Simulated assay, not measured.
Amino acid sequence: MNAIDNYDCQILSLLQRNGRLTNQELSQLIGLSTSQCSRRRIALEQQGYIEGYQARLALKAQKLQVQGLVEVALNDHSPDAVEYFHQQIHCNNAILDAYKITGEYDYQLKVAASDLNGLNQLLTTLSGYQGVSQIKTAVILDRLKENQIVNEENNLP
C-alpha cells in the first residue's frame, strides 16, 4: 500500500463523517480539484483504506432497544470447537460485532435485542453454544463515541 498524505487523511475523515459526499463537495472542502479528489478516492478504495459505503441504521429503526457487550470464554480451543463457535456467531443476527480478544475471555460481542427479555434469551442461547464455559455481560446505557479513528498527527479522525 502506498503511504497516504494529509489530503488523503482529510478525504478519509470527511467520508467517515458523511459517506454521501460527492467528489465536487470534497474538492470544495479540502481545496483540490474534483478530478484529483476522484482519483484519490478511487486509490483509497483500491488500496483498502475504504472498505465500503453503507447507511448506518439506528437501532430503533430495527426495533432494537437494548444493546450489550458480552465477553465469552471457551473451554475447548481445538480448531473444530473454535470453528463451530465462529459459525454460530456468524449465523446469529443479534450479534452486531464480534472480536477475538486477549485476556481472561476469548471473545467480545456487541449484541442487540428488542428488550431485556430478548437480551436474556440471547444470553441463554450463547451459554448453550458448545464449548462456551463462561459469559460476562454489560448492558450499554449510552453511546458516547463510535466508529471514529483518531489520527494523532493531525487530529483528524
Rank of each mutant, 00 (worst) to 15 (best):
N154W: 06
L59A: 07
S35V: 05
E83L: 12
D80R: 15
E83Y: 00
R41P: 06
E45Y: 05
I11K: 03
T102Y: 15
D142V: 12
L26N: 00
I30H: 04
V66A: 10
Y129S: 00
H90S: 14
K136L: 12
V150S: 03
Y107F: 14
S78T: 15
Y99R: 14
T125Y: 14
L141E: 03
V111N: 04
D80P: 02
T102G: 13
Q46V: 07
K100R: 15
V111F: 03
N75C: 10
V150A: 10
T34I: 04
V132G: 03
E51R: 12
R143V: 15
V70Y: 02
K136W: 09
E25Y: 04
K60D: 05
N6A: 01
A113M: 11
G31L: 08
L57D: 09
C9I: 07
I50K: 01
K60Y: 00
S38W: 09
Q65V: 11
Q46Y: 10
S114H: 10
V139R: 11
K145H: 00
L144V: 09
K100M: 14
H77G: 03
D142A: 13
D97R: 14
K100N: 12
E45W: 11
T125S: 12
N23Q: 01
A138Y: 10
E25H: 05
E51I: 13
E71D: 11
L96P: 05
E25R: 04
E152H: 11
L64K: 14
I42G: 10
I4W: 10
E45I: 07
I135A: 02
N18M: 05
L15Y: 02
T124N: 12
A113N: 00
I101M: 13
L69R: 09
Q10Y: 06
S27Q: 04
A55Y: 13
L141T: 02
V70Q: 06
A98P: 01
N93M: 14
Y105C: 08
I95R: 12
N120G: 06
Y7N: 03
N2P: 01
Q24D: 08
C37E: 03
D106I: 12
D76L: 05
S33M: 01
R41G: 01
R56G: 07
A112W: 08
I95N: 08
Y105G: 03
N92I: 01
L116H: 03
V111Q: 09
S127V: 00
L74R: 07
S127K: 15
E83K: 11
I30M: 00
N2Y: 05
Q16T: 00
R143F: 05
T124W: 10
V139T: 12
D115V: 02
S33G: 11
K145N: 02
N154H: 08
E71F: 15
G128H: 09
Q108E: 13
Q65R: 12
L44M: 03
N93I: 14
A43V: 05
L32I: 07
Q67D: 09
Q148A: 02
E153G: 11
Q28G: 09
R56T: 05
S114P: 04
Q67P: 02
D97G: 07
L32C: 04
S78K: 15
R17Y: 00
Q87T: 13
P157A: 10
E45Q: 13
V72K: 07
T137R: 06
D106K: 01
D5R: 06
C91Y: 08
R39G: 00
Q148H: 11
G128E: 06
V132E: 11
